[in-house]
């Protein structure tokens, strides 16, 4: 389909903003981890180190160069896959992260695959039968989940599924090589918890988006043409709500980024987030930097996708 010029300008603008944001975010991460803590060489060697030893290490690490050069060098490293060396384990950060990242992505993918269809069905259903018992139950559940911390959802899930029902192990990421059943069990708790957190947002936003379009004159017009409630919602409201809904999905998935940090920690799941939280407690700054950038980039990606879908779905930009 041909698109108008404004459309391309808007897309280009949005991508430009994402690029600028990425630079600012990288600088913030770099600033926080390299400049805020003070003298990294001193931190590494401890208070007892001699001045010469600190100066030597500082030179070896390139800390005597101006901050802007270090920032550019670090950015260049990131772009070429050189994430630096871990202070603590003396291994390349890239190596430490590789496996963990795959684990985290798998967790995110499974959660997305389950929660998106479920959340859309519940959100659209709640909007279609607005004010019904079903709608009210869904609303109360979602607002409850949103109002409590992620770790509480996790604790509740453990209490219900592990302690009271005894269906699932409480806090284990067992051997993944076991049977499919064992694997399912290992994933179940983290996925349930993350799924609740992400779906609650998605259901609320989807419901709101559909209801907003239901209250438009053209849906009233459909009613006055004799259309059924089903036709009004699915035929008239939904096509116009697709943009906002896609936007809601992408935005809700960005909650994965925050949720995954808590969930990996509480369930001892070997993902990037757990790695990062551990790195924070040992102040392993290069590792923290890289993990932080992974999270920022994925978050930014999701937000940008959300914005782009909003632009793509505007019928006025069609030709």
């Amino acid at each position: 389909m041909l698109r108008s010029l404004t459309f391309y300008i808007l897309i280009a603008q949005r991508l430009g903003i994402a690029a600028v944001t990425l630079v600012i975010v990288s600088f913030a991460v770099f600033f926080a981890t390299e400049l805020l803590p003070g003298d990294v060489a001193q931190v590494l060697l401890g208070q007892a180190a001699t001045d010469e030893a600190v100066a030597g290490l500082r030179q070896a690490m390139g800390l005597d160069q101006p901050a802007i050069w270090r920032f550019l060098g670090w950015m260049g490293g990131l772009a070429t896959g050189d994430f630096g060396m871990s202070y603590v384990s003396n291994m390349p950060v890239a190596e430490l992260i590789a496996d963990r990242l795959a684990n985290s992505l798998r967790l995110a993918a499974v959660t997305t695959a389950i929660s998106v269809p479920l959340a859309l069905a519940l959100g659209i259903g709640a909007a279609m039968w607005q004010g019904s018992l079903f709608d009210r139950i869904v609303s109360i559940l979602t607002i409850s989940v949103i109002s409590v911390p992620e770790f509480m959802v996790a604790t509740l899930a453990v209490l219900v599924f592990a302690v009271w029902l005894g269906w699932l192990p409480a806090l284990s990421y067992g051997a993944e090589t076991g049977s499919i059943g064992a694997m399912l069990k290992a994933y179940a708790m983290p996925v349930i918890t993350l799924g609740f957190v992400v779906s609650a947002q998605m259901i609320r936003m989807t419901r709101a988006a559909v209801i907003e379009t239901i209250n438009t004159p053209y849906v009233e017009m459909a009613l006055l043409k004799g259309a059924s409630r089903r036709r009004m919602v699915l035929g008239h409201a939904l096509p116009n709500a697709l943009g906002p809904i896609a936007n809601a999905v992408a935005l809700s998935l960005s909650y994965l980024v925050g949720g995954v940090i808590i969930v990996e920690t509480i369930f001892n799941y070997p993902g990037v987030a757990k790695l990062m939280v551990d790195a924070v407690s040992t102040r392993d700054l290069p590792l923290i930097q890289s993990c932080a950038m992974i999270f920022c980039v994925s978050y930014l990606l999701l937000i940008t996708i959300a914005d782009l879908t909003a632009i793509l779905s505007n019928p006025r930009l069609r030709r």
Binding site: L224, G226, H236
Partner: peptide, 23 residues
Amino acid sequence: AHLRGTEVSYVPQSAAAAFNPSK
């Protein structure tokens, strides 16, 4: 609903708002 459109029909004040923009 059976009556609407076939026996009684409606012309709105603002057709611009009453037409679905995506169809």
